[in-house]
Amino acid sequence: MSTRWAFAVITLVMLALAGCGGADSAVPAATPGSTAPADATPTQPVAIRFSMQAGDAPITCAQGAAALGLSQNGVQFNDLRFYVSNVALVDSAGAVVPMRLEQDGMWQSGVTALLDFEDGTAGCVDAGNTEMNTVISGTVAEGDYTGIQFDLGIPAPDNHQDVTVAPSPLNLPALWWSWQGGYKFVRIDMKIDMKTEGQAGAPTGGAWFVHLGSTGCASANEAAAPTTACLRPNLATIRLNGFDPAQNTIVADMASFLAQVDLSQSTPMPPGCMAGADDPDCIALFPAFGLDIATGACVEAGCPTQTLFRVE
């Protein structure tokens, strides 16, 4: 493991040094429809900090949660990653001002960034890796900002490409279904501590997955990208007020997110919710994204009914 860790460090050093060389040399070719916003002047640097917690307690691959969901089960986390795109700050007048992401060749590409709270240890060895990222960084036009808006996921034009040649961080097979289905916007893999042995309807092996992505994406086959929009984009636009990037952190809270879901139960195939519109596990979970499971759009603009994110 240490060689891999060392290599990761070298990679990061290489990328950091490469980034010093030429201003925009590392900017990958943008995909149509997802180009970063044009330079606005003057700008200020901005860093958006994220945290994943269960209530007030941080969660990691090694540090699970004591009691989550309707039946208050203990949970271990085997994956903790999600994509965020089209980040914008909202000023006191209500204007939505796009943030320009630093093109770092690793965590941010075009308008999309990956937040990664797993380190490949403990239960995360199945799909994870050592690298982690908890901050989105870039620039925004100077202003007085009081809120933030972002999409939870990847814009459709970037969502159906070949993971093996896509720019980082869209190059992770563990976060990709297929050309047809696109990426897993959210991957939260859980292992549920079943309080009652042999409980009817319990998830097999305690596995409970949360894989959010677009569904109803029609194409010739799984290895072909859709030529029309997916029936249910499932791209939640999250709007949070009272957010000052210098002071606040955006918390993805598993306690509030899973509050209305009974983790001691799961219909099989798949265990948990993999975004299926007719999966009872998803029907129970989708309101927490603020999404209408039938349409794949926000129940109301700004997905105000979501319970995943809050400002702290």
């Binding site: 891999r4 290599f7 990761a8 990679t11 990328l15 060749g105 690793m106 490949g120 060895v125 799909a127 890796n129 050592t130 690298e131 040649v165 980082s168 961080p169 190059n171 992770l172 097979p173």
Partner: peptide
């Protein structure tokens, strides 16, 4: 062009 560790067992 890989940027992340990909060992898998």
């Amino acid at each position: 062009n890989s940027t992340f560790g990909a060992s898998n067992f």
